[in-house]
Each structure stands twice: as structure tokens, then as C-alpha cells.
Amino acid sequence: MKTLLLFLLICSTGFSQELVATRTGLASKKDITQNYVVLNFDGISSDSLYARTKKYIQKRYAGVRDVVSSDDQNRTITIETANNGIKSVKKNGTETVYLADYKANLEVKESMLKITYSNIEIYTEVKDGEKTRFPFDSYWNAKGKVVDAETKKIVEDNFNASIRILANELKKEDGAAKTSW
């Protein structure tokens, strides 16, 4: 148990920026007026960071529903994905799969990567291709109280986990874990 707690503490300290769901989309937890997070990779040149980012995207977003919509060499990569399963939840004996369509823009500068998610659509498929949509503004009532905490948490957890995984992959040398003694 202590080992697990230590692991979680180490993982959370290595990634201090997070996104939160707002009525209009995802925003930085530190400053909700910003719709992005910036990851710092001290000592990694922009060319190397771009190459690692591109390699990760090619590996992670290789499905037929994943498209690199723009690639500005050594500066910005934009990807669009659809029907990306984000979480499966059992409710009353029935499994509900939450899906997301979104655009991710990854902008590289010297030792930094800026990540912005936009055009986010969260939904579940009911039957015959029909969707139950969960727009961001539906998580709150008119008085500003959260009324759909479950979906809000699912969305935040998914996108923050994606950023953590990306950050960990980019920190690895050559994009793979070291295996030498």
C-alpha cells in the first residue's frame, strides 16, 4: 500500500498542470481563462521535442478515425479523432461506454509543449447509431451547481491522463524505456 501511495505521489508531482471542465470546454486548472496547458521539458530542444511528439502521435493515433489534420514542421501538429472510447461504466447492470470526438493541437517551443483540446464532443451511443450527448454546459444547473459530476470527472480524468501519458513518453530517451544496465 505504501508503495502504491509513493508511486501515485511521484506521478502527480511530475505533472502539475491539469485541465478542468468548464461550461465552455476544458481550461487550465491554474487559470480557467486559458484553454491549454504547457508542459516543460528542460534540456530538450524544440527539434527533438517535436520529433518525439510526432513519434508518439504516430503510435497513439494510428486508427482509421484518427487524422493528422495539420503538421507545421517543428512547430505544431494538430490531430482529430472520433469515437475515442474514454471510459466504460456499469450502471444498473448495463455497460455504458463514454466516447469523445475532439481536436488536439500540440505546439512546440524550446523545451515546452502547449496542448489545447477543442471541438470536444462527449457522448454515449444508445442504439442504431443514436447518441446521447453530454455538452460541457450540461454539467451545471442554472445556479452554477454541478449536477453531472460523474461525466465531468470522466472527462477531466481522461484528458489529464492523456496529458500525463504523453508527458511521460516524451521524457523517455528515444521514446522507449531504457533497458541497459
Rank of each mutant, 00 (worst) to 15 (best):
K2L: 09
L5C: 06
L5V: 10
L6V: 10
L6A: 12
F7Q: 15
C11S: 15
T13Y: 05
F15E: 05
F15Y: 13
F15D: 03
S16H: 11
S16P: 00
Q17C: 04
Q17M: 11
E18K: 15
L19M: 14
L19I: 04
A21I: 05
A21V: 12
A21F: 05
A21E: 08
T22K: 10
R23E: 07
T24K: 14
L26S: 05
L26P: 02
A27C: 02
S28T: 02
S28D: 12
K29L: 13
I32W: 05
Q34N: 11
Q34A: 05
Y36D: 11
V38D: 11
V38I: 15
N40C: 04
F41G: 02
D42F: 13
G43H: 09
I44K: 14
S46L: 06
S46W: 06
D47F: 08
S48H: 08
Y50M: 10
A51L: 06
I57W: 07
R65T: 12
V67R: 14
V68W: 04
S69P: 00
S70H: 02
D71C: 01
D71V: 01
Q73G: 02
N74D: 06
N74S: 10
T76Y: 02
T76L: 09
I77G: 01
I77H: 01
I79D: 05
N84Y: 08
G85M: 14
I86T: 02
K87L: 05
K87H: 04
K90W: 07
K91A: 04
N92D: 07
N92E: 11
N92T: 03
N92V: 02
E95W: 08
Y98I: 03
L99P: 00
L99R: 09
A100I: 02
A100F: 04
D101I: 02
D101N: 05
A104I: 03
L106D: 01
K109E: 09
E110H: 10
S111V: 05
M112R: 15
L113I: 06
L113H: 07
L113F: 06
S118C: 07
I120G: 08
I120T: 11
I122S: 08
T124P: 00
E125I: 13
K127S: 08
E130R: 15
E130S: 13
E130W: 13
D137G: 06
Y139W: 14
W140P: 00
G144Y: 10
K145M: 07
E150T: 12
T151D: 04
T151L: 05
T151Y: 06
T151G: 03
K152R: 13
K152W: 02
K153E: 15
I154T: 10
I154R: 09
F159T: 06
F159P: 01
A161Q: 14
I163R: 10
R164H: 03
L170M: 07
L170A: 06
K172F: 01
D174H: 08
A177G: 09
A177D: 14
T179E: 12
T179D: 07
T179C: 06
S180Q: 15
W181D: 15
